[in-house]
Amino acid sequence: MKDTDPFENPDLKRLELFIYLTPVIGFFPALWTLYRRQGTRYRQAVSRLSVTLALGWLLGYILLGAGADASESMKLPLLLMNSLLTSSYFVVSVWLMIRFSQRQSLRIPIVTQIADRVLGKYLS
């Protein structure tokens, strides 16, 4: 009898990449993939992109939230920018999922370069 991996199914591999692109939740399996240095180059590229987007959103969210707490006069504009940043992160993630389902490129010019240079250097 042939001993096969149940995750060798191409549909399951595509589903796994969809999970990587899921906002916030996909960060953890994508980071685990990069940490273990497993998978194809494409899988690692999608993981790097997902981790870069999530870390960028988290950094902006924390900084804008701290700025809103520290400044009474700029509280409303900073909270507005914080909500726009969060909404943008979710919209970009959904847009990437749609592009992935249409089998198009997932490259975002500046973000992909940062992901390849910074995360590619330390986690791939």
Score class of each variant (00 low, 15 high):
residue 78 L to E: 05
residue 25 I to Y: 09
residue 58 L to P: 00
residue 33 T to Q: 12
residue 111 V to R: 03
residue 83 S to H: 13
residue 27 F to A: 12
residue 45 A to R: 11
residue 4 T to L: 15
residue 52 T to M: 15
residue 45 A to S: 11
residue 112 T to R: 02
residue 17 L to W: 04
residue 53 L to I: 09
residue 67 G to N: 02
residue 48 R to G: 06
residue 113 Q to H: 10
residue 33 T to Y: 09
residue 105 S to R: 00
residue 10 P to C: 04
residue 112 T to N: 06
residue 11 D to M: 07
residue 62 I to T: 11
residue 95 W to G: 05
residue 39 G to E: 00
residue 123 L to N: 08
residue 77 P to S: 06
residue 42 Y to R: 12
residue 47 S to K: 05
residue 114 I to P: 03
residue 19 I to K: 01
residue 89 Y to R: 09
residue 14 R to Q: 11
residue 67 G to Q: 04
residue 65 G to Q: 06
residue 116 D to R: 13
residue 103 R to I: 01
residue 60 G to F: 04
residue 34 L to D: 05
residue 10 P to F: 00
residue 79 L to Y: 10
residue 31 L to T: 11
residue 87 S to Q: 07
residue 54 A to C: 12
residue 82 N to K: 14
residue 47 S to P: 05
residue 102 Q to H: 11
residue 18 F to Q: 14
residue 80 L to G: 13
residue 8 E to M: 11
residue 89 Y to T: 08
residue 56 G to F: 08
residue 94 V to I: 14
residue 4 T to R: 15
residue 60 G to E: 02
residue 34 L to V: 10
residue 85 L to S: 03
residue 14 R to M: 06
residue 8 E to C: 08
residue 83 S to I: 11
residue 88 S to D: 01
residue 121 K to C: 12
residue 89 Y to A: 04
residue 68 A to F: 01
residue 28 F to M: 09
residue 15 L to T: 12
residue 69 D to M: 13
residue 3 D to E: 14
residue 42 Y to C: 04
residue 76 L to P: 00
residue 113 Q to K: 15
residue 19 I to L: 14
residue 62 I to R: 07
residue 96 L to N: 09
residue 5 D to R: 07
residue 65 G to W: 00
residue 30 A to K: 05
residue 13 K to R: 14
residue 41 R to N: 14
residue 105 S to W: 00
residue 60 G to R: 03
residue 39 G to M: 08
residue 117 R to P: 01
residue 104 Q to K: 15
residue 21 L to M: 12
residue 121 K to V: 05
residue 25 I to C: 08
residue 115 A to T: 00
residue 113 Q to N: 13
residue 48 R to N: 07
residue 68 A to L: 02
residue 50 S to G: 02
residue 89 Y to L: 08
residue 40 T to D: 13
residue 24 V to R: 03
residue 43 R to P: 01
residue 21 L to W: 10
residue 105 S to G: 11
residue 100 F to A: 10
residue 110 I to Q: 08
residue 56 G to N: 11
residue 73 S to R: 07
residue 81 M to L: 15
residue 20 Y to F: 14
residue 85 L to F: 05
residue 10 P to D: 03
residue 92 V to S: 06
residue 1 M to D: 13
residue 26 G to N: 07
residue 59 L to P: 00
residue 118 V to Y: 12
residue 53 L to V: 07
residue 49 L to S: 05
residue 14 R to S: 08
residue 101 S to Y: 13
residue 73 S to M: 05
residue 20 Y to V: 00
residue 121 K to N: 12
residue 48 R to F: 03
residue 64 L to T: 07
residue 115 A to F: 03
residue 11 D to A: 12
residue 67 G to A: 13
residue 78 L to W: 05
residue 51 V to W: 05
residue 122 Y to R: 12
residue 10 P to H: 02
residue 88 S to C: 11
residue 94 V to G: 04
residue 119 L to H: 09
residue 94 V to R: 02
